[in-house]
Nucleic acid binder design. Structure first.
Lengths: 198, 198
DNA sequence: ATATGATTCGAATCTTAAGTCGAAATTTAA
DNA sequence: TTAAATTTCGACTTAAGATTCGAATCATAT
């Protein structure tokens, strides 16, 4: 016998535990400030063990990002799949994203903010990111075309959303996480349905 | 005789030159990626000379940020001082910021993005940043209260406008100065003014 | 002209943190 | 039971890069 199924699962759990600890340290100390020693402590393993599960510090970071983005994307797929009006789908997508954010707030903020600090491309998670942006952009354009949104330039709308969701806040500083209240007001106040409106 | 006036000025010029070179490197390589050797090259001094003018790499960064933020703040003070309606003042503030950004685009993007990557507080430039934040937030709140803006949660509007404005100023390669019309349409396109609306 | 102080710099040192090593502990499977 | 495979880890090595040193150059004032 080689590797049992349970063994694989346990290995995965340990990896996840490492990733969890690493996320804490990354958030606290920043990408470069975080050391493998701290990550080892924070995740409850010895430093060398980290290298048994991951090739490098960079790979630890990559794993966090890819896991996170894949989860977001996979949670969105069904919402996108069911063919609704652009507006309905758009709303559902936002709600689903907010849901994700609620489940793991720290991770979510990290996922949306870290890409700005990263230099090298060819990261597999960027693919998920681009897909998500493309979908949102497309929904906005379709919705506006069909008159389901106010006549807002989709580009502008997208950037405004960026302000909300990607922590691209005016002062680079206070990056409070997005709450479901934010999303609700966004829906109710920013995107009042013109048909309903008057 | 101790230090002549001209000597002081020249010293300041050399410091500025270092800061200029440092900014290039920081933008290119990131805060941690930048090395003092590169900064030395890029500014045309020997490495040890940098330490004659600045105590540490961190102090070089601090100097860039403090200089930059102080300049922004000082250029805004007169605009804020003249007592106009919140909306007018708000628009003028945005215009003035855009003006600054146009003058030294690289610096401004840096100023607005770097804080996200910085950990330690007690930075003097944060004071300017907070003052600016408070002013804008206040103008939004007053404006909403007086019905000069749509009835949107000022927090929310702040975040959304953040995304929009950053996009307007930093993205794209627009060379013409941002006008008050730009800023107004930015307001109007995102959120239709309730007075005009119905 | 020369002493004092300001400025410059490359080489040497010091620090930090990533990544490796090899031995030990634990688990698995016969 | 026991040997092979898996997992764990602290100590070590090493590379990069920040900071310091000390000597050389340049400016200025008497």
């Amino acid at each position: 016998m080689s590797i049992s199924n349970r063994q694989l699962e346990e290995r995965k759990m340990r990896q996840d535990r490492i990733l969890l600890g690493a996320l804490d340290v990354f958030k606290d100390k920043g990408l470069d400030g975080a050391t493998m020693d701290e990550i080892a402590n924070s995740s409850g393993f010895g430093k060398a063990t980290l290298y048994y599960y991951f090739k490098s510090k960079e790979e630890v970071l990559s794993a966090i990002l890819e896991d996170g983005w894949r989860n977001i994307w996979e949670s969105l797929e069904p919402v996108i799949a069911e063919q609704d009006s652009p507006r309905k789908t758009f709303v559902n997508v936002l709600i689903k994203i907010a849901e994700n954010a609620q489940n793991r707030p720290g991770l979510f903020e990290f996922l949306f903010n870290v890409p700005k600090a990263i230099k090298l491309d060819k990261q597999p998670w960027k693919d998920y990111q681009h897909r998500l942006y493309a979908v949102i952009q497309g929904l906005l354009e379709d919705g506006v075309k069909k008159g389901e949104f106010p006549q807002v330039d989709p580009q502008l709308m997208f950037k405004a959303l960026g302000g909300l969701f990607m922590g691209l806040v005016f002062m680079g500083d206070r990056k409070e996480p997005v709450t479901d209240k934010d999303v609700e007001s966004l829906l109710n106040e920013l995107i009042t349905d013109p048909k309903i409106n008057n």
